[in-house]
Amino acid sequence: MKYSTEIVVDVPREEFVKKMGDPENFKHWQRGLISYEILSKNPGQEGAQLKLQYKMGSREITMVETIFKSNLPNEMHSSYDTKGVQNIQKNYFKDEDGKTRWISESEFEFSGFGMKLMGFLMPGAFKKQSLKYMEDFKAFAEDGISVINS
């Protein structure tokens, strides 16, 4: 399953990239994030890995982020792996008169019958969740609004 989402954030691209790249900020725009753990010695660089733990409803999900292309401030591509799902994210950041256009291309690969069925039956839910993260980042980057108490 593939789709793309985009949003314009009213902060300069350098500030955008700095806020997005700081793991301490993740909790302010990634709903359900419980914790993160840096797994490599080169955070933010190609090959770097980060373990992320989320609570989604009554379930806890652990995934590993692996950066496979880092060309900041222009683009950052990563994969997110968890049981039954691999999500490949290609993120592009474009300067637009002091604002930043964030274009995200997402590709999900499912393994196992249950995950494949969920991807088939609910493709809109994945896109909706991606857009929600983008909107939450926009609120955080522009106005300092955190999802922690939401």
Rank of each mutant, 00 (worst) to 15 (best):
52 L>M: 08
53 Q>S: 15
54 Y>R: 00
54 Y>D: 01
55 K>W: 01
55 K>V: 05
56 M>T: 09
57 G>K: 00
58 S>A: 11
59 R>A: 08
59 R>V: 07
60 E>I: 00
60 E>K: 02
60 E>W: 00
62 T>D: 00
62 T>C: 00
65 E>N: 10
68 F>C: 01
68 F>E: 03
68 F>R: 02
68 F>S: 00
72 L>I: 01
72 L>D: 05
72 L>M: 08
73 P>I: 00
73 P>W: 00
79 S>V: 09
83 K>M: 13
83 K>R: 14
84 G>V: 04
84 G>C: 04
86 Q>S: 10
88 I>Y: 13
90 K>C: 02
92 Y>V: 14
94 K>P: 03
96 E>L: 14
97 D>R: 15
98 G>N: 01
99 K>H: 11
99 K>F: 05
101 R>V: 02
101 R>P: 05
102 W>D: 11
102 W>V: 06
102 W>K: 10
102 W>P: 12
106 S>W: 15
107 E>I: 05
108 F>N: 10
108 F>T: 08
110 F>E: 02
111 S>F: 07
113 F>H: 07
113 F>V: 12
115 M>L: 02
117 L>R: 01
118 M>W: 09
120 F>I: 13
121 L>T: 05
124 G>P: 03
125 A>W: 12
125 A>N: 13
127 K>V: 03
128 K>Y: 01
129 Q>P: 15
132 K>I: 09
137 F>W: 02
138 K>G: 09
138 K>I: 06
